Amino acid sequence: MRVDLFDFDLPTDRIALRPARPRDAARMLLVEGKRMSDRGVLDLPDILRPGDVLVFNDTRVIPAQLEGRRGEASVGATLHKREGLRSWWAFVRNAKRVRDGDVIEFGNQVKASAVSRDEDGAILLHFHGEEPVELLLEQAGQMPLPPYIASKRGTDAADRDDYQTMFARESGAVAAPTAALHFTDRLIAALDRRGVKRETLTLHVGAGTFLPVKADDTIDHRMHSEWGRIDQAAADRLNAVRASGGRVIAVGTTSLRLLESAADEEGTIQSFEGDTAIFITPGYRFRAVDGLMTNFHLPKSTLFMLVSALMGIDVMKAAYAHAIEQGYRFYSYGDSSLLLPG
């Protein structure tokens, strides 16, 4: 499909630079089939049914944004995928100044050598020393805010908490599963009273989620792979929910992509551990999910293509036009939507 079919105009003042406070005070656009209504995240227990299950991503964002020097050259690195115990692929600013074998110094005695370069320009960095890389990143790294926020303000101490969900357990993401940023203890308690179940899986979100689609046609776009895991017990419980008439609602596109990667042709969710580069565009037949809770996404992005596949491109363009007109806040720190296909 032509990528320009997924374009729309977004005023820059609709981009949220801070989250709602409290988190669950965010607005939520409910889209059921072709019907839309303006709701709030706190309405979620009233909308969902007893027996439905929400599926959360328990990945934890690491401080994967690094600033350093290679000799006299300033170099910035955003880690996006682990490749072994001490090595990470990174998107590097000023990459032309870095050659294989060069050592980049990131401060606080944190150093890494450039090992090789991928065809997309990413550089494989091998971190020196014996301390766990996660500890080195805590010493030298910053939270990797999305470029549409980082270009407008600096990262600060508040982002350490704001850009982490309440479910974060497994370290390894370089971008937050932002749909779950809206959840709080009081919202979870209300969902429990309603009889809505919850499950977790792990997908370590990579910085590739923010990369623009440069191809003119979706068939020519290459997705970056991300590592994920669903254990057998969770898969069995999710299959039991659907068998009993409940709905599987993915909280975030990351949860959705892993569920769809783990499902077989009959729609049965299997255990899964490994990389996925699934690219969902209109025409895709969904097998594992019955709905999606997600924030509002970038024009011409793979994530807007995904929600268009779930609901229909005309429905989503109308929904986004409504959201813009009604002042919804967009992107990672923005408002939410609940998408329930007809």
Rank of each mutant, 00 (worst) to 15 (best):
G312D: 10
E199L: 08
E67M: 10
G252D: 08
L191E: 11
R193S: 14
S151R: 14
L238K: 00
N239Y: 03
I313D: 09
L135M: 09
T184E: 04
G51V: 07
D46Y: 05
Y148E: 08
P282Q: 03
A215F: 04
I324V: 15
G245K: 04
R82A: 14
G121A: 05
L145G: 02
G68R: 10
S337G: 14
E134I: 08
R97L: 10
R18K: 13
M36Q: 15
G129L: 10
G84Y: 12
E226I: 06
L79Q: 07
D102A: 13
V196C: 10
L238W: 01
L54H: 09
Y333H: 11
M166H: 06
T218K: 02
L54E: 01
M316N: 12
H182S: 08
G107Y: 11
T253K: 03
A112Y: 13
E260R: 01
A321R: 15
G107M: 09
V213P: 00
M223Q: 15
R49Y: 07
M166P: 00
R242G: 00
Q109E: 14
E325N: 11
S74I: 04
D290Y: 00
L203A: 12
H297K: 09
P146I: 07
D58V: 01
R2I: 00
I219F: 09
H182P: 05
T155W: 10
V213R: 02
L256D: 00
E199D: 05
A263L: 01
T218R: 03
M28W: 02
E260G: 01
E105H: 14
P19T: 10
Y284E: 04
V307A: 06
H126M: 11
S336E: 08
R69K: 15
P11D: 09
Y320F: 14
L17T: 14
Q326I: 00
K96F: 07
S261H: 06
T202S: 12
G154C: 04
L85S: 15
L203H: 11
L292I: 09
D52Y: 02
I230H: 01
S116M: 11
T276K: 03
S271C: 07
Q232C: 10
S87F: 10
L259Q: 06
T178D: 05
L10W: 13
R18E: 15
V196M: 06
L125W: 02
I230V: 14
A25Q: 14
G246W: 01
G342K: 12
R222D: 06
S113K: 15
Q164T: 13
E226K: 11
P147I: 12
A180G: 15
G334K: 03
V110Y: 01
R21P: 02
A16K: 03
V92P: 11
E226Q: 06
D185P: 06
R247D: 00
G267I: 00
E260M: 03
T253N: 10
L310T: 13
R82E: 13
D236I: 05
R117S: 07
R60D: 13
F56D: 04
A235P: 02
A140R: 06
P132T: 05
M143Y: 10
F6D: 05
